[in-house]
């Protein structure tokens, strides 16, 4: 454990990512403290440039851009994390069943997985949200629905690799049930790569969420970074700051997540260590 932490810390980029991520988490927690008002509330004159009474300026209606970014961090994190967890759940289920039972089940499930990897993911996500009507749960469902195939393939591969090993055969010989073997023995052994790959999924999920919100598929009553950018798009000529700052927030957050994910991957996945 300590060796793992040391390896992580030696990776300066991962450490930088962790610091950025920590700042985002501070923003998530402190948003209601720093900005007690609803971020949709009009607080001043519209289209004020940054640096005046409002740190990052105001938008077309006179809402505080900084407050919007603070509350938007909660939406991004909530959706990014929930969608990733759901995707990991689906991936473990599909990949686990395929890798454990093999045979025809595996063939069918892996074909379905490949299918979901081939089709245009973002278009499907748009379609799902449009069908379910825009809201936070719809976004989570849509992002999870397009993000699980990678995890499923990973889990299947790990299960297949572990399936013939002595400790698994011993368990089966002792009469352990399938569920017990899967959850007590196989899954814990392939958790490290799942965590490494899953952490990278969070970044993708945040990017998809921003894209959906930008297209007007976010919940109209929940502040999000994509929503602010799409509002700022119409007044790009007069007020560059509205669209600029939330984008920087997305960039930094995703960068932080990816760097931490890469760092975790190096620590948790010995096969990647020498790259």
């Amino acid at each position: 454990m300590r060796a793992g932490f040391a390896r992580f810390a030696r990776n300066r980029l991962a450490l930088f990512g962790a610091v950025v991520l920590l700042l985002v988490l501070v923003l998530v927690v402190s948003a209601p403290l720093a900005y007690p008002n609803n971020p949709f509330q009009l607080v001043g004159k519209p289209l004020q440039p940054p640096g005046g009474a409002f740190l990052l300026g105001t938008d077309t209606l006179g809402r505080d851009v900084a407050a919007g970014i603070a509350y938007g961090s909660r939406t991004s994190m909530l959706i990014g994390l929930s969608a990733t967890l759901a995707a990991i759940g689906i991936g473990i289920l599909v990949g686990g069943i395929a890798g454990y039972y093999r045979g025809r089940v595996e063939l069918v499930l892996m074909r379905v997985t490949e299918f979901f990897q081939t089709i245009p993911a973002f278009v499907l996500a748009i379609l799902i949200v449009a069908v379910l009507s825009p809201s936070v749960p719809s976004e989570i469902i849509a992002i999870a629905a397009v993000s699980w195939p990678g995890i499923a393939r990973l889990v299947r591969g790990e299960f297949v690799a572990l399936g013939g090993r002595e400790f698994v055969l011993a368990c089966a010989g002792l009469g352990a049930s399938d569920l017990r073997i899967i959850f007590r023995h196989l899954l814990p052994n392939c958790l490290p790569p799942i965590i490494a790959v899953g952490s990278l999924l969070i970044g993708t999920a945040i990017l998809i969420e921003a894209g959906l919100a930008f297209l007007g598929l976010g919940d109209p009553n929940v502040m999000s970074w994509g929503l602010i950018i799409s509002a700022g798009r119409a007044v790009l000529r007069q007020a560059w700051w509205i669209a600029t700052f939330p984008g920087i927030a997305i960039l930094l957050t995703v960068l932080g997540v990816n760097l931490v994910g890469d760092g975790l991957g190096e620590v948790l996945n010995p096969r990647l260590r020498n790259r």
Partner: peptide, 18 residues
């Protein structure tokens, strides 16, 4: 490439327009 990885394409487009 790490930075490009984390940049939303639509936002990059808007910034280029600006």
């Amino acid at each position: 490439s790490l930075v490009a990885y984390a940049t939303p394409g639509f936002w990059l487009g808007l910034m280029m327009i600006v």
